Every structure is written in C-alpha cells, then in structure tokens.
Simulated scan of single mutants.
Amino acid sequence: MSDVKEGEKAPDFSLPVAEGRDFSLADAKGKSLVLYFYPKDDTKGCTVEAIAFTALAGAFEEAGAIVIGVSPDTLQSHARFEKKHDLAVLLGADEDHSVAEAYGVWKEKSMYGRKFMGIERSTFLIGPDGVIEKIWRKVKVDGHAEAVLAEVRGEG
C-alpha cells in the first residue's frame, strides 16, 4: 500500500463505470481529474458528498475538470445510487480495492469496537499532466466539494 504525495505522478488505474465502460487515468489527459474515494453507496456522508459534487458538476466541467467517485461497491449498487439521487458524477467500482490501495486510502478502521478494512474518505486533484496537485485526507463532507472546486479554479 503506497502513500502517494503531492507533486508525484498519480498511480495509473482503470475502473468500470456505467454503461459497461471503463474509465482510466488516461481518459483525463489534458484535463484536471478530481478522484474522490468514499466508503459506501447510499450512506449519509457519502450521499451528501455525491450530491454536493453533482450540484457543482457544471462548474467543474467549465473549469476543465472531470469528477469521479470511487468506492468498493458494485456497478449495480452505483446504478441504484445514481438513480435514487440523480447523480451527475462518474462512479467507479473498485471491488477489489486495488485503486484504493494504490492511492493509500484502504485503511484499517474501527466502528463499535470492531476493526475492519475500508476506505478512508479522501480526494485527489490530479492535474492535466497526471501529477497530483492536492490531496485531502480524512475528508469532512460539509463544504468539501466547494473547496475542491476552488482549488481546481486556482482559488484554493
């Protein structure tokens, strides 16, 4: 499990997204990529975060950025999540958590005294050249999408 850093080349990846397509780092070439990792579809924080990124989808597009959310959920789960909340961001299925591991966000977590492995909510802003420009770890959802957009626009 690597710990990627700002200023380094982003680890390459390819993930299944909707409609039987895959999305890879190369698909973002020449654009900024907001790669946000979240623990689980249709849970409170993850839903608030996805809706916030969706609300700003047009602004991210205008700023030349692609937004993709990644969790270990299946494509079927993502499809239900997208439909239920009318989401307008790509959702990648990282069922084997290989991408989460490559970005160092697959961590031991603890809830109610039980330890388990899961996603640490994190966001990576990858520049048009494939270099990581900014990393947010242990993200607090409120105001996060707006902070990421400000960074994409160079206002951060």
Rank of each mutant, 00 (worst) to 15 (best):
E8R: 00
L15G: 01
A93L: 00
G104K: 05
K83Y: 02
Y36S: 03
D96L: 02
K84Q: 14
E95D: 03
K5A: 07
V105F: 11
L56Y: 07
G127L: 01
E6K: 14
A10N: 08
E6D: 05
V99N: 04
I135S: 01
V70T: 06
T74L: 09
G69I: 03
S110D: 13
Q76W: 05
F124D: 08
V34S: 14
E151H: 14
D27Y: 09
V152K: 11
H97A: 15
E101K: 15
V148P: 12
A18V: 10
D42G: 01
E133D: 15
V70P: 05
S14R: 14
G118Y: 02
E6R: 09
I68C: 06
E146T: 13
A145H: 11
R114Q: 15
A100F: 09
F116D: 10
V105I: 06
K115E: 12
V148Q: 10
T43A: 03
G154F: 06
I66E: 11
K5R: 15
F81S: 04
K115P: 04
S77T: 13
L75W: 00
D129S: 05
D3Y: 08
H97D: 10
L125A: 11
V152I: 11
T47D: 04
E19P: 00
G104M: 04
A147P: 04
I119W: 01
E155N: 11
A102H: 02
R137K: 14
Y36E: 11
A26T: 10
L91V: 01
L87Y: 08
F124C: 02
D73Q: 11
E19Q: 15
G92L: 09
L25F: 09
E49W: 13
D41I: 08
W136Q: 07
Q76K: 15
A65V: 10
L35Y: 05
I68N: 09
K40F: 07
E19M: 10
W136A: 03
A102I: 03
T43N: 07
L33Q: 10
K83T: 15
R114Y: 07
C46L: 12
F81A: 04
Y38H: 12
E82S: 14
G156I: 08
W136Y: 03
A18F: 09
E151N: 10
L25D: 13
I66V: 15
V48M: 12
A50C: 11
A10F: 02
V48C: 05
E120S: 12
E133A: 15
T123W: 06
V99T: 12
G113N: 07
G58W: 00
G154E: 14
V34K: 09
E61V: 00
I66Y: 12
K5N: 08
G104D: 06
Y38T: 11
M117D: 14
L25P: 13
E62Y: 01
S98C: 00
A79R: 13
W106N: 00
S110C: 13
E108R: 14
D142V: 14
R21T: 10
A93H: 02
F81Q: 08
E62K: 15
A79Y: 00
I51A: 09
D96G: 11
A102M: 03
L15S: 05
D86P: 00
I68V: 15
P128D: 06
T74G: 02
H97I: 14
G104H: 04
E146C: 03
